[in-house]
Amino acid sequence: MYIEQLKNKKETLIKYLPFPLVFFLFMGFNYIATLASETNTNEMIQMMIDSLGKNIVFAIMVLPLAALCVILLLWVKFFHKQSITSLTTARQKIDYKRVFFSFFLWAAILVTVILVQYFVSPDDFVINFKLAPFLVLLVLALILIPLQTSFEEYLFRGYLMQGLGLLTKNKWFPLLFTSITFGLMHIANPEVGAFGLQMMVFYIGTGLFLGIITLMDDGLELALGFHAANNLVAAILVTSNNSALQTNAIFEQVSTENSMTEIYIQVFVVFPILIFFFAKKYKWNDWKNKLTGKI
């Protein structure tokens, strides 16, 4: 089982503390600094864009997390003496077919929904496409976003979930803790400033969804593909002034009137349907033990 792979390894909580502790302290400091500032997050991002341009600001915001992905994998390999494969999956080798299946499935759903929204309510969007800036964005996004999203998956659904499993000897606490902390990591995002703390429903709900499919599938592959597709489509297809990643995307959404309704539908309807679909495709069983059982 994925979360149980380290059961017989001589690991201690102390060894698992440094990396997430430094990361969470940095995120906490960033959030406090944001609250203390007279300028809100959205205004700060806009000031940076006015000064540097969207592509450079995009790189500045995504590059640190992309670099942290490499650092985390090296930390696991050389400090914990754990293979990247065992951090990723309980299978003998990483199943890239699962990664790409999840990626293209969610990308296709998102693209379809966005295009339907555009044709049904064209006044809610403006075409933002400019060839040269878009091509630069595309190259940056294809390189940096898979690393950025992989860092979040490896940290929350991988490193922390396995480490907390060692500590608590159960699966329900790592699942809930990583889902909540994943949501809280996004609390300083402009979307939260625009729509309020109800946006936490989306971030924590997404974390819970990704945690469930990781535990049920005994690996990160589906979560890695889903998360990469989600952020990549958001970066290159549609942007808005309330987005954490304001890019040279093809469309700009100028009306967010129905955004929270769409988010509730995604969390409470679409995610359960996806879990059901994955369960049928990959023949998941023993739900109670995999999600709440002891280690």
Results as ranks from 00 to 15, higher is better:
152 E>H: 05
216 M>P: 11
158 G>M: 03
254 V>G: 05
167 L>W: 15
222 L>A: 02
187 I>A: 15
255 S>M: 10
179 S>Y: 07
227 H>W: 10
205 G>D: 14
200 M>Y: 13
265 I>W: 12
202 F>S: 09
167 L>K: 07
243 S>I: 07
243 S>T: 03
158 G>T: 07
171 K>L: 04
150 S>W: 05
162 Q>N: 01
159 Y>H: 06
220 L>I: 00
154 Y>P: 01
155 L>V: 04
184 L>P: 13
267 V>D: 13
222 L>Y: 00
213 I>M: 04
222 L>I: 09
185 M>K: 12
160 L>A: 04
242 N>T: 02
168 T>Y: 13
224 L>H: 09
185 M>V: 14
155 L>S: 04
174 P>R: 04
147 L>K: 15
260 M>I: 14
251 F>Y: 13
258 N>L: 15
266 Q>L: 15
236 I>E: 11
236 I>W: 02
260 M>W: 03
160 L>Y: 03
262 E>V: 12
224 L>G: 02
249 A>H: 09
140 L>C: 03
197 L>K: 13
212 I>E: 01
149 T>W: 09
152 E>Q: 13
189 N>G: 14
228 A>T: 08
173 F>I: 11
258 N>E: 13
193 G>I: 14
136 V>S: 10
240 S>C: 01
152 E>G: 03
213 I>V: 11
142 L>T: 13
255 S>D: 15
177 F>T: 11
192 V>H: 06
182 F>K: 06
242 N>E: 06
239 T>F: 06
244 A>S: 14
257 E>P: 03
152 E>T: 07
208 L>S: 09
249 A>S: 13
192 V>M: 15
232 L>W: 07
196 G>P: 05
185 M>L: 15
145 I>D: 01
260 M>P: 12
201 V>H: 08
211 G>A: 13
161 M>D: 00
221 E>V: 04
195 F>P: 13
232 L>C: 14
230 N>M: 04
215 L>V: 09
155 L>Y: 02
228 A>Q: 01
207 G>M: 05
168 T>L: 11
242 N>I: 03
153 E>H: 05
149 T>F: 10
159 Y>S: 08
193 G>M: 10
145 I>Q: 03
257 E>S: 05
156 F>P: 01
142 L>D: 12
224 L>A: 10
175 L>N: 03
265 I>F: 15
162 Q>T: 01
216 M>N: 14
260 M>A: 08
147 L>G: 12
223 A>E: 05
150 S>E: 02
227 H>K: 12
156 F>Y: 01
157 R>E: 05
228 A>R: 01
215 L>H: 06
146 P>H: 00
261 T>V: 15
191 E>V: 02
225 G>Q: 03
224 L>M: 12
262 E>H: 11
169 K>C: 08
211 G>F: 12
163 G>R: 11
238 V>H: 05
255 S>N: 12
179 S>V: 02
171 K>G: 04
246 Q>C: 00
248 N>F: 02
245 L>K: 04
238 V>I: 11
181 T>G: 05
144 L>H: 10
